[in-house]
Amino acid sequence: MDNWEKIKKNPGLKEIQVKRSKICELIRDFFKNDGFLEMQTPAIVKCAGQEPYLTPLEVCFKDNRGKEFKGFLVTSPEYSLKKILSAGFKKVFELAKVFRSDEKFGGLHNPEFTMLEWYRAHSDYRQIMKDVENLVLFLNKKINHSKYLNFQGQKINLTPPWPKISVKEAFLKYAKINLDKAHTIKSFSKQITKKEYLSSDWNNIFYSVFLNEIEPNLPKDRPQIIYDYPLPQASLSKRKGKSFYAERFEVYIGGMELANAFSELNDPGKQMLRFVEEQKLRKKMGKNFVPIDEKFIYALRLGMPPSGGIALGLERLQMLLLNLKDVDDLLIFPSSQLFQNHD
């Protein structure tokens, strides 16, 4: 039975949708009270995110003369919002619909979901850490009237500051791996004891270790901020001086990856190099071709101030606040019900 019909039969389920709406309202209050401007950026773009492991949905459409255009649905509003920073806006946020193909329907994923992104010009990832701590605590106080979050039987204390561990420390502590000596696949592989973690892709070794040895051992009674990712994991974040690490952090709550943040890379040359590398990697992995967003590079060239920014999965945050394990119980029209034969 579809969720909307379940609600008709069991009006108690309406509460989930009422609270989802309330959460969005509170998010807007939170940012507007801090002087942020809510933006609306396009869902259909010419150049989607170049992230090598994501598969954007391709769209094809025509104008009134029948001329055909090819584009993508955004995997994140990041490039648009950074152009907005270049345009001179200082504090912006958006609740953007984003789309990703080749992922599971249900559980922690849905092909269409909502990304809460916010950016601060003349700032960096340290301020964004404070923002996310304050936001989640604020929402939980308003929705659950407590500084504790109860998620799937686990009591999680949201009081800031949240525990933080660098990726380097986490690898040393939980997996006895020294990332300073893991710059190449060869040197990384040497330190791997379980052969099933080995791969020809540095990032896959990284996540095999992370998901098997580190994440399950992180403290569960607190949110966890994991920061300073090694360069192959830098994505669009700024390198930390000349080190092997970049200013990126992720937030984990209740065993779920909730958000990913950067001190934003604003050097057009370095950004272009990363795009070229990522495009090559996409080709090698058989991912669909995504053109490089030259206007984004141009925006960096015109000048994007040093900034901090973050992408947070709204539905995952709602699942945490409403104690739901499966996104299919949260959404009123989950893709599994729209596209798959599910009951």
Binding site: Y53, E103, Y207, S235
Partner: peptide, 14 residues
């Protein structure tokens, strides 16, 4: 089974 896609690496099945 849980499908986990870290975004910055290939998907995994936990």
């Amino acid at each position: 089974v849980q499908f986990v896609s870290p975004g910055k690496g290939s998907a995994f099945y936990r």
